[in-house]
Computed example of a mutant assay.
Amino acid sequence: MAERAEQAGRADQAGWLDEDEDEVWSGFFETQVLFWRRLAQQLQQETGLSEPDLAILQALAAAPGGKLRPYRLSGVTQFEKSRLHHHLTRMAGRGLVTREPCPDTGRGAVVALTQEGRAAVAAALPRRAAHIRRWLTDPLTQDQRRALVDISAALTERLKEDRPDR
């Protein structure tokens, strides 16, 4: 036990992860990369939508009237303003969304879900759910799923506390 503590102290002082930390990081990193890459590839192949497309369409489908201000969508996608603008332009070019003047202020715009966008999200969500089950929830026991929920909550809380924009 003392040897492990000494190892951890040396690893921390040298700026390296100790063996246990490295095992946690490596497992987490590999799982995340493989999961998101596989999900993105399957969604794109089966539906023609990217994960950001689907996040935007899903947010719009849940919004009153199928409309949201771009700043709300940036919160969903975590895109910076410029990147979101370009992404929405591409989605509008594909007929998934439109931009309309903001009725509340007369300035700015709202992004609106089109019928094509509504049909695309309705077709994509069941496929995405099947993949999430196959690669995330089905391989785990109920106890492991509960542990993953708890772990995710702890990590999310820390990440929200340590936001650089505070």
Rank of each mutant, 00 (worst) to 15 (best):
A109R: 05
G9K: 15
I132R: 11
W36Y: 09
E51S: 15
R134Q: 08
E30W: 01
A92I: 08
Q42K: 08
H87T: 07
R133L: 07
E23M: 05
V111F: 03
G65A: 05
S152W: 12
E19N: 11
E80Y: 07
Q144W: 06
Q44L: 15
E116I: 12
L140W: 08
D104T: 13
W25K: 04
A5E: 10
R69F: 00
R127L: 09
K67I: 02
Q78C: 12
E6K: 09
A119G: 03
M1I: 08
G75T: 02
W16F: 14
A5G: 01
D53P: 00
I151T: 15
H87R: 10
A5L: 14
R10G: 02
T31S: 14
K67L: 03
A11N: 07
T31Q: 09
R158I: 08
A11F: 09
I151E: 15
L60S: 08
K160G: 07
L96M: 08
D162P: 00
R94N: 11
L113N: 02
L68T: 00
L159W: 10
C102T: 11
Q142V: 14
T47E: 07
T77H: 06
V33E: 14
A130N: 10
D12E: 14
T114K: 02
T98P: 03
T105D: 04
F29V: 06
A55D: 13
Q58F: 12
P101G: 01
E100Q: 10
L17F: 08
G93V: 06
T31D: 12
R118P: 03
V24W: 11
R127K: 13
V121D: 01
I151K: 13
K67E: 03
T137I: 02
D20V: 13
E6C: 01
D53G: 03
K67S: 06
D138N: 09
Q144E: 15
R38K: 14
D12C: 01
Q13M: 09
T98Y: 04
R158V: 11
K67A: 10
T47D: 04
P103L: 07
A55N: 12
E80C: 01
M1R: 10
G95K: 10
G95V: 10
W36K: 02
D150S: 06
R38H: 09
I151A: 15
Q142Y: 04
A153T: 04
T141R: 06
G108A: 02
Q41I: 12
